[in-house]
Design a protein around this nucleic acid. Structure first.
Length: 156
DNA sequence: GCCAACGTTGGC
DNA sequence: GCCAACGTTGGC
């Protein structure tokens, strides 16, 4: 199998929305706060240039709202060492950081959000990690087939 | 706001 | 190593 090139990353729009990404300097940001090992490992396997579906979670309606791209490989998430940060991890040592982040940059916003409901109706997307029962991974792989299908949906 | 599903922690 | 308790995620 070739390298994984497509991903999906979740964000609560009240915390950080795709419009926040558009407004950010260079339309880019660091993706901090991931505190799940599986999600972290996916970030560690990202390469510069990989493409990312930007997903709004915990909102009405939850939806894929656009595309970003990976602009750095994984590096230590500084918030893990910041006592005042919500994501502070007292167990993590600067000599051996536990949590990583990547930088992503805005690519485009869909003319309309592709809602979770709509995605569920697509047989091609049945296997998407996002659509699996109980799936909560905030960083997850997307297959080339799923990616292409979502790009088609986004054209309409 | 509710709560099911999941991941992590810690007592044993 | 098991598993109950707990905290979190995120759809609804």
């Amino acid at each position: 199998m070739g390298a994984q090139r497509y991903w999906l990353m979740k964000s609560e729009p009240t915390a950080f929305s795709i419009d926040d990404l558009i407004r950010a300097p260079n339309h880019a940001t660091y993706w901090d706060g991931v505190r799940n090992y599986q999600a972290r490992n996916f970030m560690r396997s990202m390469a510069v240039g990989d493409h990312v579906l930007f997903y709004h979670s915990n909102t009405d309606p939850p939806a894929v709202v656009g595309i970003a791209e990976v602009v750095t490989t994984a590096y230590p998430d500084s918030t893990q060492f910041d006592k005042k940060d919500k994501h502070y991890d007292p167990e993590s040592k600067p000599s051996k950081p536990r949590w990583d982040m990547v930088d992503i940059r805005f690519v485009r916003k869909f003319v309309r959000p592709l809602t979770l409901d709509e995605l569920r109706k697509e047989p091609t997307l049945k296997g998407m990690v996002l659509l699996q029962k109980g799936s909560r991974l905030s960083v997850q792989p997307v297959s080339p087939l799923e990616w292409r299908h979502i790009m088609k949906l986004a054209e309409d």
